[in-house]
Simulated scan of single mutants.
Amino acid sequence: MTNDALAEFKGRYASDQISEEEFERRPERLLAVNELLDVLFEFGSGREEADQELDLER
């Protein structure tokens, strides 16, 4: 999770847009996806493009 995404995520929690359960669960899920991307793009090809696509989906 980028710093901007983390700040937005914390802000959404603080303004009650997401539940405490979601606040606790989502970072774990995002870290798992991030680890999977690291494995898939182990040699560095395509990782930046994948990160950009994920940022666009958020």
Rank of each mutant, 00 (worst) to 15 (best):
E57V: 04
E49C: 04
E28A: 05
F23Y: 12
L6N: 05
L56Q: 10
R29W: 11
E48W: 15
E35S: 02
V39M: 11
K10M: 07
I18S: 04
A5T: 03
E20D: 10
V39I: 09
R47W: 05
Y13C: 07
L56F: 04
A14M: 08
E28N: 14
T2Q: 10
A50Q: 02
R25C: 05
R29V: 04
L6Y: 13
E49V: 11
E8A: 11
R47Y: 11
G44K: 05
E48P: 04
F43A: 06
F43V: 00
A14V: 07
D51R: 05
D55G: 05
T2G: 09
F43I: 01
E35M: 15
E57C: 03
E8T: 04
R25P: 02
D55C: 06
G11D: 02
P27L: 04
Q17G: 01
L56V: 01
N34R: 06
F43R: 13
L37N: 00
A32D: 10
L37F: 01
Q52I: 07
L30N: 08
R26Y: 06
R29M: 06
R29H: 15
E8G: 01
F41G: 00
E57F: 08
N34P: 03
Y13A: 08
S45M: 15
A14F: 12
E22M: 02
M1G: 09
Q17D: 12
F23S: 05
L6K: 09
D51Y: 04
N34E: 10
L56N: 14
S15N: 12
L40V: 07
Y13E: 10
F9W: 01
R29N: 08
A7M: 05
Q52S: 10
Q17S: 13
E35A: 05
F41S: 03
F41E: 00
N3F: 11
S19I: 07
I18K: 03
L40Y: 04
T2K: 15
G46K: 13
A7H: 09
L56C: 03
R29S: 08
R26V: 03
D38A: 11
Q17E: 14
L6S: 04
D4S: 09
N3I: 09
G46R: 04
D55K: 11
E8H: 14
L36C: 05
P27K: 00
E21F: 10
E28L: 11
R29Q: 12
G44I: 01
E49P: 01
R26L: 07
A5H: 12
Y13L: 08
A32L: 10
E22G: 04
N3Q: 13
A5K: 11
D51P: 01
M1P: 10
E22V: 07
R47L: 13
E48V: 06
E53S: 05
E49M: 12
E28S: 14
F9D: 00
R58H: 09
D38L: 08
G46M: 07
S15L: 12
A32H: 03
E24S: 11
A7E: 09
E24H: 14
L36N: 13
S15M: 06
Q17F: 13
Q17V: 02
L37G: 00
D55M: 07
R58E: 06
A32K: 13
E42K: 15
L37T: 00
S19R: 12
G46H: 11
T2D: 09
D38E: 05
E20W: 10
A14D: 13
D51C: 02
Y13Q: 03
D16P: 02
Q17Y: 13
E24F: 15
